[in-house]
Nucleic acid binder design. Structure first.
Lengths: 249, 249
DNA sequence: GTATAATTTGCATAATATTGCAAGTTGTTT
DNA sequence: AAACAACTTGCAATATTATGCAAATTATAC
């Protein structure tokens, strides 16, 4: 087996499994671990993957832990995303928060929709890289390495100068009395500011997030205009929201 | 068997099997390996396949998504990067511009260096994802999808509020009389602002970028404190810079 | 047809690249 | 801190490639 072929197989393996181990490849390709290590180093220099201790992982601009969460719940997210994109009209200015739900929506925006996207999320900006008709404004600030989004004072400052048509809000917990709440203080502050200025706020939530509350309040329930879930809008748990005038999709 | 026929059979083999080996073809086509090698070289020059050590493979088995990231290639900029990182001291605030040279430097920052990085480049921010001691401040603005960095008024605005210790500037063209120039107007404006506020400006440049000039000026030559190249600092082409007091590494 | 030039091919040899191994170093785990 | 795994570096054995050259083949002109 020649080098070029080995390296191709390494690439195809890593694309499939997200990661490769030196030992596995050594057996599979029938060469020493040193050789595999050198192959991985070369591919890594070309930016085709990322060499790590013990093997290599996929080199994606979207951080790994983020992608794990993303894959976690794909089918539900897809239903939500499809409902959500139908709300986006040509020419609108749309604000995306930094959660995986908003990311799912962003990645499902039809390619012929001509919009301006504002976000503080690297993954959102990244998936829009090859959307031909989306202008992206990125909100600067201190980079939060776990969520891979910016937060802090500058973000809030910037948000207060923007009045988007739509705001897609990934929900941590939502309750009809306590409103929308989050686990992280900084993140909650950012989300609160997003809600404050948007003309229309769209909450993205699965059913199990309802009727719960976290430590930090983002907004009261009447700040929400539309709730999108992965269930039928007629579902009994959603009735309460409909009754107080929130549109449930 | 004439040459043209051989080459056709090589092509058809490779489309079937994805790869061909010199030895196999030599036996099959009943010519020496040297001849096969020469045939493959010709086909390779025509772009019909890719010559590799030991044979040839199909031209582009690597997915487009990965190939797009070829500009992440840092191997040839490694020399510059290693010289550059030695200038970065603990506790400093370091500004990185959006070019590939600056990216190479960012990706070589030692993991124990405790610094604050400011940048408008997604790739720079991304490679610092798993740097445990780098705080990253991202400069928001309109996203430029080709360079994957932000630019425009907001970026310049933000830059004017920052006084970094170091600024790493990827150079497009540099000339001792005309100073540093760039091809893109927006980008040049951003770079100019970066240079303006930084305490120390470090130009990253390969030799062939010297003595040339582009349309848009970024700064005059005396705004540059240090020039880092991939060559020996004693190189004759660099003497002129040394003479006017610029440190060349 | 014959002579001449141009191309192609194979071989010898020198230069490069690849690979596995060993010894020493660094990083991780318990 | 010890034990272990992974990595780095240098080296030697082997394999591949580049190059110059000469023989063989093909094309072209006369």
């Amino acid at each position: 087996m020649i080098k070029a072929e080995r390296q191709q197989r390494i690439i195809s393996h890593i694309t499939k499994d997200q990661k490769v181990l030196l030992g596995d490849l050594s057996v599979l390709l029938n060469v020493s671990e040193d050789t595999v290590r050198r192959d991985i180093k070369e591919l890594s220099d070309q930016g085709l993957l990322k060499a790590v201790r013990g093997g290599a992982i996929l080199n994606s601009p979207i951080p790994r832990h983020f992608r794990d969460r993303e894959h976690y719940d794909v089918s539900h997210k897809k239903i939500i995303a499809e409902k959500a994109t139908s709300l986006i009209k040509d020419g609108q200015v749309v604000l995306f928060d930094s959660g995986t739900s908003a990311l799912a929506v962003a990645s499902h925006i039809p390619r012929d929709r001509r919009i301006t996207v504002i976000t503080n999320s690297f993954p959102v900006a990244t998936v829009l890289e090859d959307h031909p008709n989306a202008e992206v404004l990125f909100i600067g600030g201190r980079l939060n390495k776990t969520a891979f989004s910016t937060s802090g004072h500058e973000v809030i400052q910037t948000l207060s100068t923007i009045r988007p048509d739509l705001c897609f809000l990934g929900i941590c917990s939502i309750d009809i009395n306590l409103g929308v709440t989050g686990q992280d203080y900084e993140d909650a502050q950012v989300k609160r500011k997003m809600v404050e200025n948007a003309k229309q706020v769209i909450a993205l939530s699965t059913l199990e997030k309802m009727g719960r509350a976290e430590h930090y309040q983002i907004c009261s329930i009447d700040a929400i205009d539309i709730i999108i879930t992965d269930e039928d809008p007629q579902h009994e748990e959603l009735a309460a929201f409909t009754e107080i005038g929130i549109k449930v999709i």
